[in-house]
Design a protein around this nucleic acid. Structure first.
Length: 572
RNA sequence: CGGGGCAUAGCGCAGUCUGGUAGCGCACCUGCUUUGGGAGCAGGGGGUCCGAGGUUCGAAUCCUCGUGUCCCGACCA
């Protein structure tokens, strides 16, 4: 492509509201422009990368045996009424009316439509299993769209839905998708992890999220340094480690701690570490009761785990100061698990410490030297629970190695759905016995536009984007120095450009006749992996200059060796 | 949803407090010089100062009501 016949539009400064690096660089490199909140135009350079991502996904999906379809983005409300999601989905679902006042929504996902399609088209178990997919625009009316295309309202997604007559068959396809996703993200050159995910109310243990690892990720991932284990921090379980030591050597003492409320303040005041403190959080229980949750001072409550406990309200809600004062003998800041008049749930880790500090249930007082067995009447070691977030250095939940925590960007999610939609929409087939049978479903998504942003979050430097080869908008930049002044530069570039095209290399030939620095800056910002510079200086010696985007050093290449040289570094 | 900030040229911003000719840098156009890492000089184009009311001789500036946009927000015992 000649730049003069293309459209590139780079910015020196990034717009003030772009806070993450991928958003800034996508704007500066001229990949996207914002139209309105969460709505973006893909410009030519950006679209080339988006198409490459799509094509990798499409090729691998096809190879896995999935079959491409394309469903409407606008969907009738009736289907959503049938699945009961019309009422459940809430304001994230963009709803609209047509001229006859019929209700529609702009599809945030396509389970209803595909299930409707299958119930109409698939009659027999002999047609199963089948896995349909599409690459299509979705709309989710996010409360707070941000980070550019990372969390936009309109976005492109690859969604696949598989149909089966048995759980075993579903598991088989699930496994194939699991492997296919590995192939897809590996081909894109991304560092990622398959992460065990929440299966919600549907049950089963079969759901994985695929996360690209990047510091700006919104999710924290806990993974083992010794195995493939990886899970969202929200879900990674923690276990009872050892029995509480019951030395009881230190006497229980009540000590005045005036105006010391937070863990930090109490630590400083009493000169103890936060791991020697038991903090007590008061949350709402069922039927308007209160429940106390006891944790080590340096641990954080995991709300998802806590709200699943019996007697705790779901969703989890903290008691406010008024409610605490009505039921307890003190204000927040001095609450402790000993002698509390409400149910106390103790975290595994908190239950194994002794001689700890905790609130004395009297304003401005804490206990020193507390011991569970001796001082807490309600304490039973067997009753401790898993209510904290896993932390770096914990034993891996699979027992192998210890836990590290990194941030990740969720780019894919695979899920064994079961019969949730097929039952609601009555998607049945005749089985071998000639009887109606509800089909079992799996679904598999990849956020196509988000992948582009995630790839940038993982691959950039001070000069701009550094695209992995397979998703770069162009493979190679051809940069002339003094194009219009030097006849030999011009004829050489024209010849090289033709040759590169004939070799099937996607070259971006910068024939704008700009200053060298401008062109270098533009092409580096756009992240093009390879660069050939043609100037009089080198041509006199029969040399071209080559530089790889990720490599700081350039090298001279004899012009006659260019083909051989490129064959080694680019997959032609 | 609650709280806060912002809204002036395509982008980044000043001007608003204290009302009186709408500015700067980048980008864009013209000319000359320059030409291996975001050039220099000269000239030029481009504005619904978010919108609607109000106060005033006069409003980007003050007041009221909207709209848009961005950020923050339950770990506190």
């Amino acid at each position: 492509m000649r730049v003069s016949q293309f459209f590139i539009s780079t910015l020196k400064e990034s717009p003030a509201d772009a806070e993450v690096i991928s958003h800034q660089l996508m704007l500066r490199a001229g990949m996207i422009r914002r139209l309105a909140a969460g709505l973006y135009t893909w410009m030519p350079i950006g679209l080339r990368t988006l198409r490459k991502v799509e094509n990798i996904i499409r090729e691998e999906m096809n190879r896995s045996g999935a079959i491409e379809v394309l469903m409407p983005s606008v969907q009738p409300s009736e289907l959503w009424q049938e699945s009961e999601r019309w009422d459940q989905y809430g304001p994230e679902l963009l709803r609209m009316h047509d001229r006859h006042d019929r209700e529609y929504c702009y599809g945030p996902t396509h389970e209803e439509v595909i299930t409707d399609f299958v119930r109409k088209e698939v009659r027999s178990y002999k047609q199963l299993p089948v896995n349909f997919y599409q690459i299509q625009t979705k709309f989710r009316d996010e409360i707070r769209p941000r980070f550019g295309v990372m969390r936009a309202r309109e976005f492109s997604m690859k969604d696949a839905y598989s149909f089966h007559t048995s759980k075993e068959c579903l598991e088989q396809t699930y496994k194939i998708m699991f492997e296919t996703y590995h192939k897809i993200f590996n081909r894109m050159g991304l560092e990622f992890r398959a992460v065990e995910a929440d299966t919600g109310s549907i049950g089963g243990n079969a759901s994985h999220e695929f996360h690209v690892l990047a510091d700006s990720g919104e999710d924290a991932i806990a993974f083992s340094n010794a195995s493939d284990y990886a899970a969202n921090v929200e879900l990674a379980p923690t276990f009872k480690t050892n029995e509480p030591s019951n030395d009881g050597q230190i006497e229980l003492t009540k000590i005045a701690t005036p105006n010391q409320h937070s863990i930090e303040e109490v630590c400083k005041f009493l000169k103890v570490g936060p791991e020697q403190i038991v903090k007590t959080l008061i949350v709402k229980g069922t039927d308007g009761t209160l429940v106390a949750l006891a944790l080590r001072g340096d641990h954080e409550l995991n709300t998802i785990k806590a709200q699943k406990l019996e007697g705790v309200a779901e969703p989890l809600e903290f008691a406010n100061e008024q409610e605490i004062q009505n039921k307890l003998t003190c204000k927040p800041g001095s609450i402790g698990p000993l002698d509390l008049d409400i149910p106390v749930i103790i975290d595994h880790a908190a239950a194994t410490i002794s001689n700890f500090v905790c609130g004395a249930n009297e304003d401005g007082f804490h206990y020193l030297g507390a011991d569970w067995k001796r001082d807490c009447k309600k304490f039973e070691i067997s009753s401790s629970a898993d209510i904290r977030k896993i932390v770096e250095g914990d034993t891996s939940p699979d027992g192998k190695g210890t836990v590290s925590i990194k941030r990740g960007i969720e780019v894919g999610h695979i899920f064994q759905l079961g019969e949730k939609y097929s039952r609601a929409l009555k998607a049945n087939v005749l089985n071998a016995d000639g009887k109606d049978q509800t089909v079992t479903m799996g679904c598999y998504g990849i956020g196509v536009t988000r992948v582009v942003a995630a790839a940038i979050e993982q691959n950039f430097d001070d000069h701009g984007i550094i695209w992995p080869e397979s998703i770069a908008p162009f493979q190679l930049s051809l940069i002339p120095i003094n194009l219009k002044k030097s006849a030999s530069v011009q004829t050489t570039c024209e010849r090289l450009y033709t040759e590169l095209c004939n070799l099937g290399i996607e070259a971006l030939y910068d024939d704008r006749d700009l200053r060298a620095g401008l062109m270098f800056a533009d092409h580096e910002l756009m992240g093009i992996p390879h660069r050939i510079v043609v100037g009089d200086r080198g041509l006199k010696e029969g040399q071209l200059e080559y530089k790889g985007r990720a490599n700081p050093d350039s090298q001279q290449i004899p012009i006659d060796n260019l083909h051989e040289f490129l064959k080694d570094i680019i997959n032609i």
